[in-house]
Amino acid sequence: MSEEQIKNLEAQFEARIARDEKIEPKDWMPEKYRKTHIRQMSQHAHSEVVGMLPEGNWITRAPSLRRKVALLAKIQDEAGHGLYLYSACETLGVSRDELYDQLHSGKAKYSSIFNYPTITWADMGAIGWLVDGAAIINQVPLCNTSYGPYARAMIRVCKEESFHQRQGYEIMIKLAQGTPEQKEMAQDALNRWWWPSLMMLGPTDDVSVHTAQSMKWKLKRKSNDDLRQQFIDQTVPQAELIGLTIPDSDLKWNEEKGSYDFGEIDWDEFWQVVKGHGPCNKERMNARVSAWEEGEWVRDAAMAYAEKQKERKEKQAV
């Protein structure tokens, strides 16, 4: 194809997206669109799968059977969501195994929030309430993104995640209404998870590199700063309602702009964790890599068995 022809196709392609048409796997698409989508969807999938680990810590130690089944079901959903998103990636011609390789070799990123440790039960509450809360803000607009398989996966994800945040907030309510010890546990978790949750919505708009292109392709509907503001505005009253204090002395309602002003985010910490030096980056990656490596003989065996069965059937048919 000549350069002009490609330019022409690209113009048509952008026009389709602007008209709110969906792009499907076999449609022509610019290479950059394909690559950007693989990157974003796989990052998202990796985040779901790595995200199972910090919460997985507490399955065996959940304080009641009711909490245990809710947590298990939530983490199981995360595995499901990882699976939906990897599948969406596969429609663009990259296999799940390749994507795993990228994760395990450190080439691919996942949400940095999962590199923080879960050290008390209240962290299960804080993750559900804050981390899932921030994730939902990011994800709901994606149900309408331009790439069909991604949009469909996100519709499923959002539908299923609706209980996740409630699950977490309910844990926090119970703690906040409990004994002083429990309340302290809840406040401590909020103190530790608040700032990383704000960071989770991404760097500020002035340094964010992908935003303009992503907006055009509907991979992003609002800027990081807008999303962060939305998250803060909706979360602060939820904290107040249960008597917990947001750990930000600069936080105050700004009547004029109709939203909260908030303090400086420690972006050095953010970049430290993104670059692989957070408290649990190594642990998370080791856990994923060893699950994958220790599972290899199992996956090979299942494949070998299926092939043998197929051969046997074919022989019988002769």
Binding site: V49, I59, I75, Q76, A291, E294, E296, R299
Partner: peptide, 12 residues
């Protein structure tokens, strides 16, 4: 085992 199985499908 949740999160540590040989594949996502077996985890689920």
């Amino acid at each position: 085992l949740c999160g540590h199985g040989p594949s996502l499908e077996t985890d689920i």
